[in-house]
Each structure stands twice: as C-alpha cells, then as structure tokens.
Simulated assay, not measured.
Amino acid sequence: MVKKTGRPGYLQIADELREQIRRGTLAPGDPLPSTTRLAEDYDASLSVVKMAVGILRNEGLVIGQQGKGVYVRETATAGTPAATAEDLADIRATIKDLTERLERVEATLSQQPGRPRRSPRT
C-alpha cells in the first residue's frame, strides 16, 4: 500500500518492485502482476502504477511484450547498474535548479534597457 509520506506513490511502488527484483522475489523472466492487480495491491490509480512500471522500464529492469504483459528482464542485474530513486531525485532537483536559474537570467536580460524583447515562441 502506498504510504502518505509525501513521497510520490509511483516512486514508492517502483521502489518496492525494484526491491522484489533485487531480492529475487520477482526473478528474471517472471511477469509483473497486471496493472490492475498492482493498482489494487497498492491502493493506487492505474496511471500511478503505469508511471512506476515506466520507471522500471527506463532503468532496464523490466520489458513489456505487446499483448502479453511486463516481464523482469533476463539481464536485469547485468550491464549498467540501474539508477536508484535517490539518483533520480538528484537529477530532478538539478533540472529544477537549472530551470529556475535560466528563468532568472532570461528575466534579467528582458529587463535591460535598449535590449529588444523577443516574443515567446509558439
């Protein structure tokens, strides 16, 4: 069940499934429970579960087979190590910081006298 910790539910679900894969509870080749089943188990919406599974796909831990389901990859532990939730949180924080800095620079430049203002791109 998703806990009300302030941490997004999709990250909690991804963490739990990732841990099951690492422990071997979900072994290579095993199917993940259906999206509907995971939504029921975690008391979460289908979109939250799909986001969690998407994270695991991006990490290379699971692979979807059209019309069949999502399976733990045979090489889930081989190759490049999967990013942890903490790594992803750091990346998101860095992107947010850079976005805010860029907005401040653009605001400063647009307020300088004699500088032509650019219209926003559409």
Rank of each mutant, 00 (worst) to 15 (best):
G69M: 01
L26G: 03
G67H: 11
T84M: 04
V70I: 15
E40V: 13
D87I: 02
R104P: 03
K4L: 07
L56P: 02
E16C: 05
A85M: 13
R7Y: 08
E100L: 13
G6F: 06
R73V: 07
M1K: 12
R22H: 08
G64Y: 03
T25G: 08
T80Q: 15
S119W: 09
G24N: 06
A44V: 05
P113Y: 05
V2C: 11
I13R: 02
V2P: 08
R23Q: 04
I91G: 08
L109K: 08
A44C: 13
A39R: 09
T122Q: 12
R57E: 08
L88S: 02
T99V: 09
S47R: 10
V70A: 02
Q20T: 06
S34P: 00
R92D: 15
T25M: 03
I13S: 00
D90V: 04
V70N: 03
R22V: 07
G79H: 04
A93R: 11
Q65K: 12
T94R: 00
T5E: 10
Q112H: 13
R37Y: 07
G114H: 08
T5I: 01
R7T: 14
D97Y: 09
L32D: 05
T108K: 14
E19D: 12
V70R: 00
A107N: 14
R23P: 00
S47A: 08
T122E: 14
P81N: 07
V105L: 15
E106L: 10
I95T: 13
D87V: 00
L17E: 03
I13Q: 06
L46E: 15
G24I: 06
R18M: 12
A107Y: 11
A14V: 04
L26I: 02
A14L: 01
L102M: 14
E19W: 01
Q20D: 15
R115A: 01
A52R: 00
I63E: 09
Q66W: 11
A82C: 11
T77P: 01
P31R: 10
A27P: 05
L109D: 06
R104S: 15
I95S: 08
K68P: 06
V48H: 01
I13D: 04
E40C: 09
P31D: 10
E100V: 12
E40S: 14
V2K: 04
G60V: 02
Q65D: 12
E40W: 07
P116W: 05
E59V: 03
P116H: 09
A89D: 12
G54P: 10
G69V: 03
A93V: 06
A93T: 09
A52V: 00
R104E: 15
Y71V: 04
T36H: 06
V62L: 08
